[in-house]
Every structure is written in C-alpha cells, then in structure tokens.
Nucleic acid binder design. Structure first.
Length: 483
RNA sequence: CGGGAUGUAGCGCAGCCUGGAUAGCGCACCAGACUGGGGGUCUGGGGGUCGUGGGUUCGAAUCCCACCAUCCCGACCA
C-alpha cells in the first residue's frame, strides 16, 4: 500500500517527512505560485490566481448581498495621515515600506505604501459624511498591500499580498458591532461552504487585536500539521479612527457625533489555508466550489482515437460546460493517460473523467474522485447530473473530513501539565480557561509557543480556573501554535 | 532580526575537502518513430556568466572576504 502510494507521486516531499517542504513543493509543482526576483514577493501563477478569483467571487457576492459597494483608494498614504491614530502607527510602524523619493527629488512628505487603508479611507469618510442620513457607509476595496515582513512564505506571508478590506461607518456602536459580527459570519460562511474549511470564529485577545481597534474577531482554521491559521479578521474600530480622522456627523438629535467604524479583511493567505487543510501526499485537493477545473476529461488514446474517442470527449466537455461545470479536456497526445492522472491529481482537480474505446462500447464513462480515489463507471447518458452530484459530494466529504480532523485535534485541558502535554504530543487547538491577563497569555506563549487564537462567543466558564495561574477564569479560549 | 543550512541547466543533485584540459548525472525540454485504461520505449538533440562582486593564484565551481537569495528553527505579523 505504501509502495503503491509512492507510485502515485514523485517530486513532492511527504507531509509526514517535512510538512513545510511538502507545502512549498505543492505550491510550486502545482504551479500556484513561484518565487520572484523581489525579496519576499511571489508571483501568483495563472492556476493559483484562478483559485483566488473564485474565492474573490465567493466573497464579493456576499459583500454585495450585505449592502457593500466596491471602491478603490490610493496605494500611497501620506506619512502625516498614518500618524494620526497612535496605536495604529505603533502597530504598523515596523512593517511599513516608505517612499522618500519621486523622480530625482526627495519628497516633501514621505509616503507609506499602504499596509492597510484605515488612514486614507478614514480621511475620505470625514469628507463624505455630514449627517446621520449619510450613514451607514459600507465600502469594500480589493487591493494589494505591503507589509515589510522578515520571514515570508508563499501565500501565507509575503511582503506584498492581495486582499479585500471592508471599511464601514455607522451611526451607533451597536450597528458597528453588528456589522463586525456580520462580516465575521461571512468569512466563516465562505471558509466552510466554499473552501470546505471548518473554522472557529471568536474574539481576539487584547494583545492580538488589530492596532487601533476596539475589538478584533477572527476565524481560525486548523492545518494538517496541527497548527492554526488565522483566515480572516473583522474589527470593531469603535470611535478610535473617527476621533483620529475627525469623522463626524450631525445626529438625529442635532448633536455632533463621531461615527462608529469597522474594518475587515481576508487575503490570498486563504489559498495557503486551502492547500494545508485538504492537501495530501499526492498534492492538492481542491474543494469543487473553488477549483478552476472541477472535472478533467482524459481521453484514452488507442488506435484511431482521434476519430472515435476524441469527438465523444468533446461532446462530453460541451455538455458539462453547458451544465455550468468548469471542465478541461486534456487532449495532449504527448502524455500518457497515467501521466495525466498523476498530474491532475497533483493539481487537485476534484473529478477525473476517463473515456476510452471500451467505455464507448458500453456507453459509459469512468469517473474518479480526487478525495477518495474511488473509481466508478457511470452511464454516459445523464453524466452531467452524475458529475454535479459527485462534485457536491466531494465538497461535503472533504469538509467533513477536515471537520473530523479538527475535532480529533481539539482538546480541552484542565491542568497546565495536561495543556503542555497536549501541545507536545498532539498539536491542535486546546480549549482552556484563561484569567484574562496579558501576563498569563505571555507566559503561556513563551513556555509552550501556543497563543490565544480566539475566544468563542458562546463559551462562558462558570467556575473555571485559569490554566496558567489558577485564578478564577471568565472565559474559555482556544490556544494553538499558529502560523 | 538572531541561530543553522543551502546556492552548479527548468527541477533534483554529483564534482569542492586535496585548484589544472571540453563541468557531469537523473528527471524535465525539443525532433522523430513506436506507444497509450496509473507518471511508456528507443534514437537523435538543445540548454550552464557554477548566486553576485571582489581577492589569492600561471590557473578558481573548487581556496579567502563581502554581499544577495532561498529553506529550516526561534522573536514579530493576514
């Protein structure tokens, strides 16, 4: 069995041997991305970008459905604007790239390349908002941002990355909180229903919250190596940026008030999350909803296949396209069928459709699932329906598999000893009570490398005691070693 | 940014220690033929500023210095 598995794939380091290397191998071999000549910056290749586009669409249609509109703000932010919100500057200063020269002259005022756009968007909001009737403002932007990272990894952390950032302004605190949680819910929905990736949604600790936010929420996913990955964040900014950027409106009672803000973002990191949630030793396993090709047709070239098999393959392709399936017909004759099987499995295509002379004789095709490698012969009539059903089944199966994995790797700890043992032996999420102090949080981090990922909203712990200091704890929190 | 490792063809590597003639191997790539239901076979072929810059030397992939890049492990982050 092990030998057989070996035969399926070359060129990829097994996950069990070196997970990091497996990840890099898959990204490069599947042609999702490549290193560029620019330090810390990657090139997203067409296949990887196609995945991103599908994720974008999944997010974007939900943003639109919740009343948001897209806009675009400048890449550059004048230094003085960034400085306006104290926590914000302090948080981002170490990661900011500066532009100090334009053409042959030093700039009067240096520009930062946006690490995020609160400053510039807040400035514009101040101009656009006069009255409560202008509220809420619900804007999203798709953009690139730059954060000067010291250590980079393909998709997970690069100097420049693509994301979306939503920015909203509201009349009341309650509305802002509602918006923050609504968008957190959108992220959770996309993660679970499009990416088939189960996540824990919850609130970040004070030390982990966004620089300048009142409250930060996140969705946290579990990668196959047992480390957690933050996959999306939503911030309630309170009135912090409103005060810093003077975003005021005349309220219904004629008084002058500061708006309540939110911002929320998800990035190309999601592509990395998908890879590490579903991938196996043969390569990528893509959720059908975001797979650039949901089906690959491999014709079996035998004898006069170009006259017999290929036309049928084209008909199948047309039929599937017609049914709204993203399908690729791999009719290259420089490669053998076996080679193509391995190649498209490596690239994570959820379903393979084989058609050869024998199948035509029997009016059938052979379908093979990427997730289970299950092979089944199905009648050629109605194949589009079968494919649609199977795609849904793959989508559901890989979500369930990922969910089982997360459940198997999520444990409750009641003592610090137990807590440490879990993190050593079987990495994953550990749910444990926490007293709420930064001291305990920091000590746990330095002693175990685990950080607080987030705090589930629905988990109070009456009578719980902090895992670290044994003082009464108010909340259960998810700890994990994280990316 | 600290600790460690590695840079030789698209990818993976050998050669370096002990300097010497035309820098090799596997895979990939190109041409053709035979093939084809789980990474085919044969024949022929193309491709290298040996990471970059300096130095030592009659001579450097090989020795020395600096820089750069990538990976791994830590501190910071989406």
């Amino acid at each position: 069995m092990a030998e057989k598995k070996e035969a399926f794939v070359k060129e990829i380091t097994p996950q069990s041997e070196d997970f990091s290397r497996w990840y890099t191998d898959v990204v490069r071999r599947a042609e999702l991305a490549d290193y560029s000549p620019v330090k810390g910056c990657m090139v997203i290749r067409p296949y990887g970008y196609a995945i991103w586009e599908l994720i974008q669409q999944a997010l974007d249609r939900r943003f639109k459905a919740t009343g948001h509109v897209n806009a675009y703000f400048p890449l550059f932010i004048p230094r003085s604007l960034l400085l306006k919100e104290a926590d914000h500057v302090e948080g981002f200063a170490p990661q900011v790239a500066w532009v100090t020269r334009g053409g042959n002259e030093d700039l009067e005022e240096p520009l930062v390349i946006r690490p995020t756009s609160e400053a510039i968007i807040g400035t514009m909001f101040a101009k656009w908002i006069q009255s409560w009737r202008d509220l809420p403002i619900l804007i999203n932007q798709w953009a690139n941002v730059v954060r000067w990272e010291k250590v980079t990894r393909l998709f997970l952390r690069t100097t420049e990355f693509l994301w979306q950032e939503g920015h909203t302004a509201h009349e009341t605190e309650a509305e802002a909180e509602e918006e923050t949680l609504r968008m957190l819910g959108v992220y959770q929905d996309v993660a679970e229903h499009e990416l088939a990736m189960p996540v824990f949604a919850g609130r970040k600790s004070e030390s982990e919250k966004f620089a300048g936010a009142a409250r930060t929420y996140s969705i946290e996913a579990l990668m196959k190596d047992g480390r957690a990955l933050q996959a999306g964040t939503s911030h309630n900014l309170g009135q912090n940026f409103a005060r810093a950027f003077d975003i005021q409106f005349q309220a219904r009672d004629k008084s002058l008030q500061y708006v309540w803000g939110t911002s929320w973002g998800a990035s190309t990191r999601l592509v990395g999350a998908v890879i590490m949630t579903h991938g196996d030793d043969s390569g990528l396993v893509l959720p059908p909803r975001i797979a650039p090709y949901q089906v690959v047709i491999v014709p079996i070239p035998r004898g006069d296949w170009r006259e017999t098999v290929l036309p049928r393959a084209r008909e199948l392709q047309a039929g599937l396209l017609n049914a709204g399936v993203r399908v690729m017909l791999d009719d290259r004759d420089a490669y053998t069928p076996g080679w193509k099987y391995a190649e498209w499995e490596l690239r994570g295509v959820p379903l393979r459709l084989e058609i050869g002379p024998k199948d035509i004789e029997r009016s059938q095709v052979v379908l093979v699932r990427r997730d289970s490698r299950e092979k089944l012969a199905v009648p050629m009539d109605g194949v589009a329906r079968t494919v649609a059903t199977l795609l849904e089944d793959v989508q559901r199966s890989i979500f369930e598999r990922a969910l089982r994995f997360r459940e198997d790797h999520t444990t409750c700890a009641s003592s610090y000893e137990e807590f440490r043992q879990i993190l050593e032996g079987r990495p994953g999420f550990v749910l444990a009570p926490w007293c709420g102090t930064e001291e305990c949080e920091a000590e746990i981090k330095s002693e175990t490398q685990a950080t607080i990922r987030n705090m589930p909203a629905d988990r109070g712990t009456p009578g719980g005691r902090c895992i670290r200091c044994d003082r009464p704890a108010s909340v259960d929190v998810y700890f994990a070693k994280a990316y």
